[in-house]
Amino acid sequence: MNCSDVRDQLEAYIADDVTDVESMRIAEHLGRCESCAAAYERTRSVVADLKGISEAFVPRDRFVPHPAYGTGPAGGWVWRTIAVAASAVAIAAVGALSVPAIARELPFGVAKEFDALEDRAEDLQQQVDELTVRLEAIDGEQVAMVDTTPGDLAPEEAAAVQQLAMDFIRAQYAGDVAALEAMGTDRLKADLAARPGDYVREGAEGLTFAQMTEPALAEDGTYLIFVRLMDSGDWNESQYQEDFEIKLIDGRYLVDFMGMDA
């Protein structure tokens, strides 16, 4: 290591942000180079002073969480987000994507289907884990965004799937069974006819879309998308999630399965 390498690394060395090998090389150089040792001492002193004031500011206004604030942003921003983000980014569902026990108690489908969904959810979760979540301000609101590796789905394909999931949820809250039917496959229509109460939701005025995943395409051609939301009804103490399986049939995207998830 020559002097200029050492100078370049000094700040990181002092902040303990170099590898052990680099650290030893730098220490060794500092032991035999007066000029670098002096530079080290100057930088170390400024750094120590900076660290010394990091806890010195005691704000007069202390933050107190207000329970009512936990309801999140007003509904609607996801629509803007989709317009902005359809091409390369999507909002992350960073909550639990596996199907928890509570979903199994709900009268949808059979346990086998949940298991299949859970397997695929794990794959999707792994993909989400590998993504970088960052917060972006969109129209002044903080939105959790995910950098996705481009490829899987065409932007318009992803946007259509996201749009269908959200239309479906809105129809659920509008209590519009005919609209739900029109958005479903035969399988969903049958389930809807048998158990309409499982689909209709209350508390529409508090409906807030919190986050949603980038749709994933399973091997059998089913799209998976998970949407986290809140409403002002019975579920309002926390967000919950709707898991969708969506199929492309004769050029139309249709909901094949919808399950609730904590």
Partner: peptide, 9 residues
């Protein structure tokens, strides 16, 4: 300082 109290050197 007005918005904060200084608790440092």
């Amino acid at each position: 300082p007005q918005a904060f109290v200084w608790d440092g050197p």
